[in-house]
């Protein structure tokens, strides 16, 4: 197992390097010089311009810029935001827990409903339940996040007044962030009602963000389960006289989960992309909303650092998926 993890880890290093290069390149390919863009309509004297360019290292040859960028990264320097003058890494780390909390609850929602939906649909293949569940899944899969979010807000927040419209917690509560996760901090603070408030703020955004992954997981679980149910070893399990719950829930599901885990991991990308929209709709102070704002403010260092950080996290998520795959699938672990 350890050699397997080591092998997978070694493979991620070149990926991270490629990411550094691509984010570096992408920002330099954006039309317009970041310095000129910042000076605006009024223009700037050539001396001031040269000085700015020197401060930002833009007068260096490109390879030198890249080398500086990488060596900066190696020291944890992801650049300084042009707008707030704060280190990008610090801003990111302050906001990231909010996104992570949202993505986590969205995944929990997607997995807890997606897997049972898929299993039930497979067991009732061709029946009303199968068609019903898969119809709902297809609907969820094709629902634009903006539209879906607004729909839920209109119904649950405006019509029924059940959930708050935006933010992470009621303004009634205040406590210093400890972990950055509102639900955990609320519990730590010990303030009555704080946890419930944090949770009620999470429900709608998590449902909105989790809908597409839920649909993807349900569909994958169904098709994988249908395939596995035809396998000889499922017949063997039944020939052993095992109860159906054990045959389905252990012998079949364990095998059916192998492709599903990969799909869950691939939802990491969907989640972060979806987080940009979801956070904007629900005024959720996470990195998605921050990235959108950086674009509008032309805060290139923030954008460059933010994108690199997010994509590195995705790479690590994929690494995690591979490790989980190795745990549940011995053939993967033994390199076949």
């Amino acid at each position: 197992m350890l050699t397997y993890i080591g092998r997978r880890l070694a493979l991620t290093i070149p990926t991270i390097f490629a990411l550094m290069f691509l984010t570096f390149l992408a920002v330099r390919l954006v039309p317009g010089d970041p310095v000129e863009v910042r000076t605006g309509e009024r223009g700037i004297s050539p001396e001031r311009l040269a000085q700015f360019r020197h401060e930002l290292g833009l007068d260096q040859p490109v390879w030198k810029q890249f080398a500086d960028y990488v060596s900066g990264l190696a020291q944890g320097d992801f650049g300084i935001s042009l707008v707030t003058k704060e280190p990008v890494l610090k801003e990111f780390l302050t906001l990231f827990p909010a996104t992570l909390e949202l993505a986590f609850f969205a995944t929990v929602f997607a997995v807890t409903f997606g897997i049972p939906f898929g299993v039930v649909a497979a067991l009732r293949r061709g029946g009303i339940l199968d068609h019903g569940l898969m119809g709902v899944a297809l609907f969820g899969y094709s629902m634009p996040i903006f539209w879906w979010g607004l729909l839920l807000i209109l119904f649950f927040s405006v019509q029924l007044d059940l959930t708050p419209v935006s933010g992470r917690i009621d303004l009634l509560y205040y406590f210093e962030p400890v972990t950055g996760f509102m639900t955990i901090d609320a519990l730590i603070s010990g303030q009555e009602g704080a946890f419930a408030s944090a949770l009620s703020h999470l429900v709608l955004p998590a449902v909105v963000l989790g809908t597409i992954p839920l649909a993807a997981i349900a569909r994958m679980t169904r098709s994988s389960m249908l395939e596995v149910l035809e396998e000889d070893y499922v017949r063997t399990a039944r020939a052993k006289g095992l109860p159906p719950l054990r045959v389905i829930g252990l012998h079949a599901l364990r095998n059916a989960m192998i492709p599903v885990v990969t799909v869950i991991g691939l939802q990491g990308g969907t989640l972060l992309a979806g987080a940009v929209l979801t956070e904007t709709i629900f005024a959720w102070p996470g990195v998605g909303k921050w990235l959108i704002e950086s674009i509008f403010r032309r805060d290139y260092p923030a954008l460059q650092g933010g994108v690199l950080l997010i994509s590195s996290i995705l790479v690590l998520v994929n690494l995690g998926v591979d490790i989980v795959n190795g745990v549940i699938n011995p053939r993967v672990r033994h390199g076949r």
């Binding site: 070893y233 063997t236 006289g241 095992l242 011995p330």
Partner: peptide
């Protein structure tokens, strides 16, 4: 019937490789 199957009547199959569960 499940109390009989696997205990008093047992069965083995044509394809032994695919008849065992690869995950266990």
């Amino acid at each position: 019937r499940r109390r009989i199957v696997g205990r008093e009547i047992a069965m083995i199959f044509q394809e032994p490789m695919s008849s065992l569960n690869p995950c266990f």
